[in-house]
Structure formats: C-alpha cells, structure tokens
Design a protein around this nucleic acid. Sequence first.
DNA 1: CTGAAAGCGCTAACAC
DNA 2: GTGTTAGCGCTTTCAG
Lengths: 336, 336
Amino acid sequence: MVKMSDVAEKANVSKATVSRVLRNPEAVKKDTRDKVLAIIEQMNYQPNILARHFRRSQTNTILVVVPNIMNTVFSHILGGIEHAAGENGYRVLLANTNKQVEREYEYLDHLKQRQVDGMILLSARMDKNVLTEVMKQFPVVLTADYLEGVAIPTVTIDNVSSARTATEHLINMGHSRIAHITGPLHLLVSQDRLKGYRQALLQNGLAFDNILIQEGDFSHESGYNQMTKLMALEKPPTAVFSANDEMATGVIKAAKENGLSVPGDLAVVGFDNIKLSAIYDPGITTIAQPTFEMGKKAMELLLEQINGIEMGKRQHVLENELIIRESCGANFKKNG
Amino acid sequence: MVKMSDVAEKANVSKATVSRVLRNPEAVKKDTRDKVLAIIEQMNYQPNILARHFRRSQTNTILVVVPNIMNTVFSHILGGIEHAAGENGYRVLLANTNKQVEREYEYLDHLKQRQVDGMILLSARMDKNVLTEVMKQFPVVLTADYLEGVAIPTVTIDNVSSARTATEHLINMGHSRIAHITGPLHLLVSQDRLKGYRQALLQNGLAFDNILIQEGDFSHESGYNQMTKLMALEKPPTAVFSANDEMATGVIKAAKENGLSVPGDLAVVGFDNIKLSAIYDPGITTIAQPTFEMGKKAMELLLEQINGIEMGKRQHVLENELIIRESCGANFKKNG
DNA sequence: CTGAAAGCGCTAACAC
DNA sequence: GTGTTAGCGCTTTCAG
C-alpha cells in the first residue's frame, strides 16, 4: 500500500505538501501541485481515509435512523437524504430499528463514539430527556415525526391542516357522514390527522360521531377490517378519510366486496401519495407529502449544525398538496 | 473526552489491559476485568472507534450499491442485508447510484481507500474487467443481478425457470395466445424472463408470435401503454405475462378501461410479489422473489469472504414461488 | 496474565 | 509556499 510519505519522497516534497495538494490545493504553487498530482497518479496512491478520519476526528458520515426501510415513505425520505448528503460530500450510514426503541438507543453510541458527524431520525421513540442530552452534544435532526417539548430541529408537514384539507374536500363533495380511519394513536402523526379531521367537521357545523372513528395501524388489512366494521353500522358513512394510502386500499377493497362502488357509493381520501395511490383502481385522492424534499431539507439542516451555522427557526413545515384522483368522486371516471 | 489511558490509570492497569477487556475479555483475569469494567462504567468511557478502525484498518462497515432505494424490491433486499449485517456487528453504508455507472465507479474508491470492508452490488453496470480486478482485491458480492463471465459470488433466483412457471400456469389455464411484456431488454433479468416465456411456449407446442412480445421499462405506465397496443391487434392475447408487478397493474388498468374484465376476459401474471400485488384489485398472481432472504444470503457470503473462509459454490440460486391470486383466473372471485 | 513500547498514516501548528 | 515535527488513541507484538 503506497502512502503519503512515498509520494512525498518521490516528488521531493514533504508529506505536508502532499497533504495540502489533496485537501487544500490552493495553498500550493501550481508547479508543485502538478508535480505531486502526477506522482499520485503514477503511483496510484489512495489516501488512507481512516487515518484522516482518525486524525481529524470527523468522518463525513451521517447516521439515518429509520423505523423500517421497507416502508415506501421512509425509503423516499432516505432517497432525499442520500441525495443531499452525496452533494455535500457526506455518506449515509443506515440504521434500521424495526420500530424498537432499544435499537434507537444502541445507535446513539455511534454518535458518542464519533463514528458519525450527525444523525437524522425518522422516528423518535426514545426518551425526551435522553434525546435532549444528545442534542446538546451532537448534531441531530428529526423528520417525518416530531416531539413536543424538545427543541430539536424538525422537518415535517402540517398534518393537522392537511387532514383538515382532506376532510373538507369530502365535505365539499356533499358528504356529511364521513368516517376516519386513524393510524396508531400513540403516534403524534396519527393524533394530528385525527385533530384535522375533527376541526374540519366542527368548522363546517357537522355532527361529530365517535363511532365513525376507527383506529388502524397503517396496514392494508387494518383498513379492510375497520371498513368492514363501519359498513355494518346502522347508518354507515358515505365517505372515509383514511390516515394513509395503504389503509385506503383496504377500505376500497372492503367496500367493493360489499357491493359498494367507489366513489359512487363511497368516497375515499387517503394520505401520503405513495405510488400505489396513483396506480390503484380507482386512483386514490390523497395528500401528497413531499418525502424526497423532507429528506433533503433534513440533511441541509443537519449540515448547518455540523458546520456550526447559527440556525434560524427550528421547526420547518413543508408544503403538502391535495391530489385529486377518482376515489373521492370529484374526478369520477368509470373504468372496468 | 475520556480515553483509554485515563481508564488505565484510574484502574491501575496498563492501556493494553483495558484494550483486552474491551476486545478480548477472556484474556484477562476476572478480577482485573471486573475492576476495569467498573471504571469504564464509572468514567463513562467511550472507545474512540475511529482510532480503532485506523489501527486495525478495518471498519466493520460494508457498502451497498443500490440503483434506486425508492424501489420496493431493492429496499427489501437492503432490509435483508441490514438485518444480517447488524447480527454480525457490521454497519451498512448506503450508495444510491440512480442507475448511473459513474456513481458505481466512484464508490469503488471506498473499497480502495479501505473505508469499508466489502461491497454488495444490487446492480452491476460497470465494466466486467474493472469488476474482476476489484474482486481480486476486495470482498464483493452481487445480488438481484448477475453477470456472465465474471466469477463473482452471486445470489439470484432462476429467472428463466420462474418465468417458465408463470407462463405455464397461464397455459394450464387453457390460454394459447399469451403475450409477454418484458423489462428493459438490456438487463439480463429481462432477457431471462423472456427466455423462460419462450421455453414454456415451445415446450407446450404453442406457436410463438413476436407481435405478442412488447418491451416495457418496469413502470406502470409502460405496462399500460404496451397493453393498449396489444389490445389493438387483430387477434389480441387472452393472457399476459408481465415481467414485473408494477407493469401488471398497468396491463390490468388498460384492460379494464377497454371494457375487459380481469381475469374474465384477460388473465394476467406478474413478477416480484411486491406488496402491491396482494393489495391490488384483483389480486395479482405473481412469482415471489425472496428479496429479504436474498439480501441476507448476500451478506452472509460477503462475511465469508471478509473472514477469509473458503467459499464453496459461487452462484447461489434461491427458491421462488408462484403465488396464485385472482388475476390469472385460477382463483376467480368476483368483487366490485 | 499483564505491561512496555512502537507505530498505524495522516494533519496542522509552527517555523522558516 | 514549503518543511519539520508532534501527536491523534488505539492495538499488538514481545517480554516477563
């Protein structure tokens, strides 16, 4: 393995100069630089990055903690992070927690051991005090989730207002008996979407019926099951706002199996705008989360922290958008 | 930052002993070990892993090169890799190439600079000779893709035989005019699936009609477009084997829009068994690739290389399975 | 079973 | 603009 001192010797310069050519080329006279560069090329020298990391105690690597990579929303945010990281010379270390808090804690060691320069969390299940402590010492950003009472930089969308938008869309279509299938209610995201749903009803003078609110777990199956329950009601809903797209497909499936047409007999709105919602039959009206953008933004905030740039606001709320397709009835187009 | 020498001093032992306690506890007497462990705890000592990496020139990190993380198949393989890596004390560095060869080349430097202990490729677009050279020097495994004439350890499924199975299933359902929408034909995977389709027809004495073979690009849209073409034929097909599930949804959509019922008027079989295929209406009959398992196996092979274990065979072919749902007509269940 | 000592390859003061 | 030098914190012989 050829090392820096070999290059230095052959080029008749010092190690320091070789190091400068690599990390701060402007500080070296062009002649010298070219000579060194030529030798580097000729000897096929590869700097030992581990030595560099050690010496500088910096790794140009960040850690991304994901509850589940196999989930589309997360993998898209990850895509955005990876993109921004790459553009700034950073690498991404993947930490899949499988939704286990313990694994979140384990990965904190990577920060403490300086194995990474910062961390982006896509889910924060850990204790708030622990997280607050970590934040004081290391660059951390939270996205796709948020935490109350922790001053951690966060990138999210406004789940309350977008849920309100979604629900209002159904109200505007003339529905008054609108059900909501929520996500797991221990997640703030789910609570917020529920809150938005409530607000829309109240603000439009609609009666609020608890029986129309069913808790799902973001899976297709739970959407199917909860919809089945709802259809068994004496006065079943004419519209459903589902807290994510995957559950919306379960809702539609259950409705169809019961002889209901969507959107003819039942209007459905989902959330996330995952690819599935565009492909599904009928196309699912949904709220588009700018997942890739969220990842990108989160990485940018992390870089600011790493580079010690004074941050302005800590809470970043990105725009979301109602995507109108067939399932809500606004764009009714019969096929099949 | 408390370091090893601090711990050593306080515990009245040498740095060497502390190091042993951490990396090779058996080599230290229990009393000494316990004493050192207590001090470590008490001082809240965190080893400087960068120094360790540098010293040992080993990182316990592997690089995973993915053409596109946002693709379900890849993110599931990644899940399997991450799982196996975690179990073996390895970390996963993510390298998204966006399908650009140049980026594959860039990432090779990580190996050359010893930043990672090995590499798993989920796509091999780079030059075979380059790859062969790399393989001689560093642990590398290829999965989800393969290369002819390169002795690289590979984990795949048998695309030819599974495509044959899929097509034969349609033949057994009584179809004789079966179309095939391929993936991009520059990919070996696509070529193999086409080959399997051909074999099934030939072995069953069916006429082979080139017009029934249309090249797609694995997207929903291409499935839709190619199916639209096929339906315009004088003698349109009664069944379609699509090279992936996403295109299959396009096929079904086009068929429905044309007033055909699936599977009543058109039988469809997909490939991959992504979640979508189970959720779609109708459920899509498909070939299940064991994506998570592939990732796991790939990681295991990589570990063997890293640990210098003599490898047996280099080509690992995992089992795949035909998942029968509604779209092929075998399980016809009308809904909606 | 434990300690002493050398040194991994690079960077960054500091001199010149 | 360039060279000299002193480590970064750990692991690993080699002795004892």
